[in-house]
């Protein structure tokens, strides 16, 4: 199912500069796998060696932090809006 993924500035080198890309899947995990196929290299920036979401990465499904949902198993449906947000602002 197609979803919209908003991509933060530091990851746009993987999306040819696009701030928003399409991906598919019925769980967040599937969406990220699909994102990796379309934009190789992006998964490693989001997930650690154990496959968990990196501590400094926040992912929101329709505005809800997935850490308060079902993490990578969070369900997503057609037309959902997924945002990847680094947990910092950078530059003091």
């Amino acid at each position: 199912m197609p979803v919209r993924v908003r991509v933060p500035t530091p990851l746009r080198r993987f999306t040819a500069g696009a701030d928003e890309v399409a991906a598919e899947g019925s769980s967040l995990r599937q969406v990220l796998e699909n994102l990796e196929q379309r934009h190789p290299g992006i998964r490693e920036r989001l997930l650690d060696e154990k496959g968990d979401i990196r501590r400094f990465v926040n992912i929101y499904v329709n505005g809800d932090d997935v850490r308060f949902l079902d993490s990578l198993n969070s369900k997503v449906k057609d037309g959902d809006d997924i945002s990847i947000v680094p947990a910092i602002a950078g530059g003091r």
């Binding site: 920036r45 400094f56 910092i88 530059g91």
Partner: peptide, 11 residues
Amino acid sequence: DAMHGLEGLKH
């Protein structure tokens, strides 16, 4: 890396 969690620092 550009994608980092070190608030205050710049890549």
